[in-house]
């Protein structure tokens, strides 16, 4: 399986605090990966680096078949290259309808002039409806997304990511604050998505990670502590020490 994203030897320091310390990580083209780790392990900072929000002090981040470096690109360029990111708290455009939210995210030319003269064709409407079905929001399309429940917003955001047709999906704690039924639905959306693309899920909840049934990477103090199946890492003594604080 060829590599989609390769992070190697990355370090970043905030005011003397090493948030990421010589981290190396890679993921293939159609793979689901869960990243777990205690608070402050550097999970969010890792995502910030991949999406271009934070520039590392050293290290390489290599992307895709053409092996381009993501370090020189802006956030928007990285997103256009095929990296989608979902934030911890649901961030959707609350002032706009679910339909508009999805339409905005559809993979299209992002140039201001083509956006200005954009006319929506039937195929785009079709795509939006398909996506809405996928995330279970077909009935809510004309509603303002601000009126949706917490879980629905999370799905909408995942739906927007899927609309971008990314090759890599970074998802930060998708199940936080969800009811068990909603988690079930979220799991199935993510598992479905991982069939055609790489998905990285950052999660605290072991039960949720177990349902994803995928390879797990454990971060601790900014570097990889263990990697493997969930059972494998949870039996690792170091991981137990870190998690239980012994």
């Amino acid at each position: 399986m060829s590599t989609l994203l390769e992070v190697s030897g990355v370090s970043v320091t905030f005011d003397g605090f090493r948030a990421i310390n010589n981290l190396s990580f890679q993921i293939g083209k159609a793979e689901m990966r869960a990243i777990i780790g205690p608070n402050g392990a550097g999970k969010t900072t890792f995502m910030d680096i991949v999406t271009g929000k934070t520039r590392p002090d050293e290290g390489r981040v290599i992307w895709g078949d053409k092996s381009v470096s993501l370090l020189k690109m802006s956030e928007a360029q990285i997103a256009r290259a095929g990296v989608g990111r979902k934030f911890q708290r649901p961030t959707v455009f609350e002032d706009q309808s679910v339909f508009d939210n999805l339409l905005l995210a559809l993979k299209k030319d992002r140039n201001p002039f083509s956006v200005l003269f954009y006319k929506r064709g039937p195929s785009d409407t079709e795509k939006v409806h398909t996506l809405a079905e996928q995330i279970g929001l077909t009935d809510h399309l004309p509603r303002k997304s601000g009126e949706l429940s917490h879980g629905q917003k999370q799905w909408l955001e995942i739906g927007m990511l899927l609309a971008q047709e990314p090759q890599l999906l970074l998802v930060d704690e998708p199940a936080a604050g969800m009811t068990p039924e909603e988690r079930e639905h979220t799991t199935s959306i993510l598992v479905e998505a991982a069939k055609t693309r790489a998905v990285v899920v950052v999660e605290h909840d072991m039960e949720f990670v177990r349902r994803l049934n995928c390879k797990v990477t454990v971060l601790h103090e900014g570097s990889v502590l263990a990697e493997g199946s969930l059972d494998h890492v949870t039996s690792n003594q170091e991981v137990i020490d870190v998690y239980l604080g012994r």
């Binding site: 999406t51 956030e75 928007a76 989608g84 992002r110």
Partner: peptide
Amino acid sequence: RDDEARVRFLGYSV
């Protein structure tokens, strides 16, 4: 206006 970062991560050059 409402969430600049989200727009940026959708691939729009804000």
